[in-house]
Design a protein around this nucleic acid. Structure first.
Length: 570
DNA sequence: ACGGGCCGCGCG
DNA sequence: AAAGCGCGCGGCCCGT
């Protein structure tokens, strides 16, 4: 009985451009260990959705190189899939994971040039299609591996995961990452509901009537004029940092930079309008009319999510700044008529993850209530919540100076296991070592240049090397926490999707997941389903914790709000 | 004209 | 009172 179905662009017997004008894909059924079962089936472009839907109905799991190559057009054709294995994402994890067996495949991944475009390792690379060899003037295309090559790689990936507790965690990570890719494509397909009219009205209120690109709107022009007179510089361009710094210094403001946190330290009549100018200028350049034109169409903002785009495993995005939507314009995110948003946020995810990672019973106890920082404060800081929060964030980020650094010993006395874990991660990174998340995503190894710089003789170089070591230590320190939190969030998303699909399969109208932001998820659901959706989001959070950590005394509460406008969440 | 570096600021 | 993590993006500046 086949268990998987591989979808690829061509087979070795049929190089892409030889495969007949309409053959756009080949499907190969695979058994439990990835071994081929039956013949390769060529599929013409117009039949791909129907063929996928038929195989999907048999309950097989998809295997493909990149989810983004296939799934968007399947979704456009109305076909969704239950599960997939994304070879490229799993390749990236296996490359550095110390939980993987040191097979020849994993070894070849580790040897890959860090700057090379990713793809199957050299040993598995397909022969170059012959017709490309003379085509000197053709645009270079990334090689699309043949079905046989990808099937082989899938087997190598399966066999690289050991049958041990660590291996099972790695297996979960590979599954969660692949599920993330599927969810990311679905979120882009649905898009975030975005009211251009509300956004435009907000721009007009703040900036004045719309102007051509490159022309300052009225409010900004007025402020620029005012700044020129207040700083006594008729030629001042407030968008130029060096212009601005010179003018400020001449006017008696001894700022070293033009950043807002530094400027607000000084007193000068020009500073208030300058900060106002910066605020409005940012709104215009980042989320002004040009942004609306470029990114919002048919009432939806459809950003591209880059799963695993951050080294820690967090998602990144490309285009439109999807993960940086300012709070000030979130009122443009409005539910369709008859629908609402269910917005859920994992409360203080990272310190909770640290408690679970370190098995720190005291921190788990502190996290029992709904307010983790108050719990920490009550146990180690005489009830002072602000200090507790600064100390905890400093411990996870590697602060050494200021209040945060000063409070660290106090935190360490109360929660020795949790603080010990991040300290050890930091020491390891400073020494050039790698660290790993709970499920087994590992930090990239130190570069040869970094290692070489650590062995130096001159005093000045040594100072720089020490600085680089501390910087790397802060990175590895944070990696274990941020990366494990990202894994929890992936599991949360996956569990949420599974439950929503089950509801949908039972005939209920459940809406969609439309946005995900590290530890927050937004569902766009029929109003009648909102209460059920809220419960499902909470169940998914509990299930994610259980899936990753098993039965542990650490709670992962989510705060859920049902709103019409995203601005009203939290 | 284009692009890399840097700054500054938005998000978590 | 801005130290300490991870990103994307747009603008300016200066090199080619």
């Amino acid at each position: 009985m086949p268990r998987y179905a591989l979808l690829a662009t061509h087979s070795l017997g049929q190089p892409a451009s030889d495969a007949g004008e309409d053959v756009a894909a080949v499907v190969q059924l695979l058994g439990t260990d990835g071994e081929p079962e039956g013949a390769l089936e060529p599929v013409t472009r117009d039949r791909i959705p129907a063929v996928v839907a038929a195989i999907e109905a048999r309950g097989l799991r998809w295997v493909w190189d990149r989810t983004g190559d296939w799934y968007p057009s399947l979704l456009a054709a109305g076909v969704s899939v239950e599960r997939a294995h994304d070879l490229s994402l799993c390749r990236n994890i296996l490359r550095f994971s110390t939980s993987a067996d040191e097979t020849a495949y994993v070894d070849s991944l580790r040897r890959q040039d860090p700057d090379a475009a990713d793809g199957p390792p050299q040993a598995l690379a397909p022969p170059r299609p012959p017709e490309n060899q003379g085509a000197l003037f053709e645009e270079a295309k990334p090689a699309t591996a043949a079905a046989e090559t990808l099937a082989e790689e899938f087997r190598r990936q399966l066999e690289a995961v050991p049958r041990t507790p660590r291996g099972r965690r790695l297996q979960l990570l590979l599954a969660a990452e692949s599920a993330g890719a599927v969810i990311a494509a679905e979120m882009r397909h649905h898009g975030i509901p975005w009211r251009s009219d509300i956004h435009a009205a907000l721009l007009r209120d703040e900036l004045g009537p719309r102007t051509a690109h490159g022309v300052r709107p009225a409010r900004l022009e007025e402020l620029a004029h005012l700044l020129r007179s207040l700083l006594g510089d008729p030629a001042l361009n407030p968008d130029s940092h060096q212009d601005l710094l010179r003018a400020l210094n001449r006017a008696g403001v001894p700022a070293k930079s033009t950043s807002q946190w530094e400027l607000q330290e000084y007193t000068h009549p020009a500073l208030k309008p300058l900060l106002r100018y910066k605020k409005l200028s940012r709104l215009l350049s980042a989320n002004g009319w040009a942004w609306l034109d470029a990114w919002v169409a048919d009432g939806r903002f459809r950003p591209e999510y880059v799963v695993g785009g951050v080294v820690t495993g967090r998602w990144a995005s490309r285009g439109g700044g999807a993960l940086q939507i300012p709070h000030g314009i979130r009122d443009a995110v409005r539910a369709d008529p008859g629908r609402v948003f269910v917005v859920a946020d994992a409360a203080q995810l990272e310190p909770r993850v640290l408690a679970a990672l370190a098995g720190d019973r005291a921190l788990a106890d502190a996290a029992r209530g709904r307010d983790l920082y108050q719990g920490i404060a009550d146990r180690g800081f005489g009830g002072d919540r602000a200090s507790a929060k600064i100390a905890m964030l400093g411990a996870m980020y590697g602060a050494t100076t200021g209040e945060s650094g000063r409070l660290l010993p106090q935190l360490a006395r109360t929660f020795p296991r949790a603080v010990g874990l991040v300290e050890q991660a930091a020491r390891h990174g400073e020494g050039g070592g790698e660290v790993c998340t709970f499920l087994g995503r590992c930090s990239p190894p130190a570069s040869p240049q970094w290692l070489a710089a650590q062995r130096t003789s001159s005093a000045e170089e040594q100072r720089r090397a020490d600085q680089a070591a501390r910087t790397r230590g802060r990175f590895t320190r944070n990696f274990v926490v941020q990366g494990t939190a990202a894994e929890w969030a992936l599991c949360w998303l996956g569990e949420l999707r599974r439950r929503l699909r089950a509801e949908r399969a039972a005939g209920r109208e459940v809406g969609e997941v439309v946005f995900f932001l590290h530890d927050e998820v937004v569902l766009h659901v029929p109003a009648a389903f909102a209460a059920d959706a809220s419960a499902i989001v909470e169940q998914a959070a509990a299930a994610a914790a259980e899936l990753m950590f098993g039965s542990i005394p650490v709670e992962f509460p989510v705060s859920v709000a049902t709103v019409d406008s995203y601005a009203d969440a939290k």
